[in-house]
Design a protein around this nucleic acid. Structure first.
Lengths: 245, 245
DNA sequence: CGCCTAAAAATTGTTTACAATATAGTTTTC
DNA sequence: GAAAACTATATTGTAAACAATTTTTAGGCG
């Protein structure tokens, strides 16, 4: 019933022998979640498409338990909508939601850039340059999945410089929420190239410790994606009159 | 801690063939998660205390599946730490983590206050006043669970005025991460009273559309909790020298 | 023909049983 | 007597069966 006296927390030492924890073998559920996420990112699954547990179980050669957990995870991430007893579907974002998410992203990413300690270590600059090259290569080869992941890694490394783990995590979280709309902007090759050049400029600003320039770049870098999505949305469903301010 | 069996009535008259059902019947797992969360908030479960699935299943008169899901949920919320094959425990936050979380909270809450459309409708002011009164009553009666929830509702209503759903959700998320440390600050009655008066001042600033004052109040309002926690932490474990960030 | 009702199928949600892993305790060996 | 190896127990992870719910399909009635 109540807590067993067996081996409760030792409220004593907080020994730093906690290092036995980094067992980072992603559970099957996490892998499945990532695969579904990729499908959504690359536009292979469209908003409002149903995600049926048995189908996914067959697809991933596993049982429903894992798939179920993956769907719960994706629901929390905001990529999937789950209605009790009726199942899960790919979540579609309204232009309003997208606008709001990007407003918060801008605030947080600017915050991150604002608190990066300058000057940045040369080794960190090198790492960013390497990630930028990977990104450029993926774009040149047209490997969209690699474009996605290398871009992700670049930004994680960049914002990682700020040193605030919670901020980094939150930025990641919000980025994930709009994974699904990237395929709209990335459909235009010039947008990809623009992103690539932005990254180069960011590295330059970092190297020169020009914070204001970096902030402005970060702001601009966020703009194309929501604009492309909203344009595509309105073209498809018609321009919605603003409901409530 | 006594536990009521939380089985709900199975006969659901849900004849609602209406629209996409917003049926918000929280799953059993969600209820369990909330109960555990409350225990953590009120200090009834301490950091590093183990959460064993079978124990919780007995306690809540349910099977392990629900408990398992609840623990996954709490892990995502950041209140619980789960180590594969070893189980879950209440997560303890280091002073560094707390400082970082509060830095992000401040940024976001200030953002919310900055974009609230002024003037605020009288009905919204009234609602805030009502919530404030509930909070004051709960403090006076010493009902800590009510203090917690009424305070939560007040802030949700306040930040809800900003109109950005994503921002509201993110603010909530970060607040949840530090639920567990509130009991440290709330142990001091003067801290509770200070919070109460802060709320009154906020309402006054809102009514007068004095944005800068509101921003400053929001900043100040966030300060006592992490300070109290860090002080208690250092007193208990000894002051840690700042590690390399 | 349209609409309501009822059976059937599809899908999700719950429960139990079983297997894998980690922790604690005991014995063996040097 | 201490360390290593082994056994026992406790706990989590996985899988399958079962139950409840929703959606689809078919049929009857106006």
């Amino acid at each position: 019933m109540a807590a067993k006296p067996l081996k409760q927390a030792k409220t004593k030492p907080a020994k730093s022998r906690e290092t036995a924890a980094p067992a980072r073998e992603p559970a099957a559920a996490a892998l499945i979640a990532r695969r579904i996420e990729e499908d959504i990112v690359l536009g292979r699954r469209h908003p409002r498409e149903r995600l049926i547990e048995q189908d996914l179980s067959d697809l991933f050669r596993t049982h429903r338990g894992d798939v179920r957990l993956a769907l719960f995870e994706l629901e929390k991430k905001g990529l999937v909508e789950r209605i009790p007893n009726r199942g899960a579907m790919v979540r579609g974002l309204t232009p309003e939601e997208v606008t709001e998410i990007y407003a918060v992203r801008e605030e947080l990413e600017v915050m991150a850039v604002r608190i990066i300690p300058f000057p940045v270590a040369p080794s960190d600059i090198s790492r960013l340059e390497e990630l930028q090259r990977e990104h450029a290569v993926a774009i040149a080869k047209g490997e969209m999945l690699n474009v996605f992941y290398s871009n992700l890694r670049f930004h994680q490394a960049l914002f990682g410089l700020c040193g605030n783990a919670c901020l980094i995590e939150t930025i990641d979280l919000l980025a994930q929420k709009v994974y699904g709309i990237r395929s709209y902007a990335n459909a235009f090759p010039e947008a990809l190239d623009r992103a690539r050049r932005d990254h180069l400029d960011m590295i330059k600003a970092l190297r020169g410790s020009r914070r204001d320039e970096l902030i402005e770049l970060s702001r601009r870098h966020l703009r194309p994606s929501p604009e492309a999505y909203i344009k595509a949305y309105e073209q498809r469903f018609g321009k919605a009159e603003p409901a409530t301010a």
